[in-house]
């Protein structure tokens, strides 16, 4: 889904400020009144409350947790929760984390390899039927996952892949339409002189891909890796369908499991659940900040695509 505008989208965060440059007088429309600041402060404070609550609960003692008596501002600082989460829940939380890392990394590798191959072909190689194929690629973006969910489950069950990582990883090695589209857009904008010259010099199509195009593709591939990492890291439904053995679960599913397995008379260990939530969140914030400039760069290259 793409909407045509000149406005860059994703990497907007890294964009230099546009209005109210030092040289020009500030127009009325851009003058910030005290009310502007008041609203911004209040809204950002409200937006920050869940984070505070997350931290506060993560640092609460087991006793506070059992009484469900949490405060927004951290009242206790039980840092040992951050080690207890791995030992005191009765669940293999360390394994959850490792599972998440394995699934997310391999999925990203799969998407990067496959979408770079397919996107390159759609951008550079000529073949009868290519236009129709590309329309099919775009059309597949419209199909919601729920439609294929049940037959896919039956397929993977038939293959004996239930309770393995395979159903979550393998489909990523067959690329997805959106990433193919991104790579195609990106490669289309690269100058074609280089690969033409390489072709004259006798390099084959795979050689052109491997030696010429691939090294130039890394900004878009980094962006795709980030998309895939964040999507698979946070994915809940996929693991919920395919994994029911504790030692195979990724952290996102394991956290939910942690809140549901406790004895009915007992509250879940909320303090440790929140530590888990922080463990689930921090890598996403880190990846975003490390990758921000690639997302921005990709955005510039893909240009008109107001894509998310």
């Amino acid at each position: 889904m793409v909407v045509a505008t000149q406005a860059p989208a994703l990497g907007a965060v890294g964009r230099p400020e546009g209005h109210g440059g030092a040289s020009a007088r500030t127009l009325k429309a851009f003058q910030a009144s005290p009310a502007t600041y008041a609203v911004l402060l209040i809204v950002s404070a409200i937006f920050f409350v869940p984070f505070l609550l997350m931290i506060s609960i993560a640092l609460a003692s087991d006793r506070t947790s059992a009484q469900n008596a949490f405060t927004i501002i951290p009242g206790e600082l039980v840092w040992s929760n951050f080690s207890h989460v791995f030992t005191a829940t009765g669940l293999p939380v360390g394994t959850f984390v490792i599972n998440s890392v394995i699934i997310a990394t391999l999925s990203a590798v799969g998407q990067v390899i496959s979408s770079s191959l397919v996107g390159y072909a759609f951008a550079r190689l000529r073949a009868p039927g290519k236009g129709v194929m590309f329309m099919v690629v775009l059309a597949t973006m419209m199909i919601p996952a729920q439609i294929t969910m049940i037959p896919q489950f039956l397929l993977f069950k038939e293959l004996g892949w239930v309770n393995t990582y395979l159903p979550l990883i393998v489909p990523n090695f067959f690329s997805n339409a959106f990433n193919v589209f991104l790579v195609r857009q990106f490669v289309s904008r690269l100058p074609s002189e280089l690969d033409e010259a390489a072709q004259v010099d006798g390099l084959g199509y795979f050689g052109i891909y491997r030696r010429i195009i691939l090294p130039m593709m890394w900004p878009i591939l980094t962006a795709i890796a980030i998309f895939t990492l964040t999507a698979t890291w946070g994915d809940f439904m996929g693991p919920l369908i395919y994994l029911n053995k504790e030692e195979m679960m990724p952290l996102a599913l394991g956290l939910q499991y942690m809140t549901s397995t406790s004895n009915a008379m007992q509250l879940p260990p909320w303090n440790l659940v929140m530590v888990g939530s922080i463990l689930l969140t921090l890598p996403m914030i880190a990846i975003y900040y490390l990758g921000q400039k690639y997302l921005y760069e990709m955005n510039v290259s893909v240009g008109s695509a107001g894509v998310k």
Partner: peptide
């Protein structure tokens, strides 16, 4: 907040 995975958001 948009960087927080849905499961963690739901927990909070």
């Amino acid at each position: 907040p948009t960087l927080v995975p849905l499961v963690a958001t739901a927990m909070v």
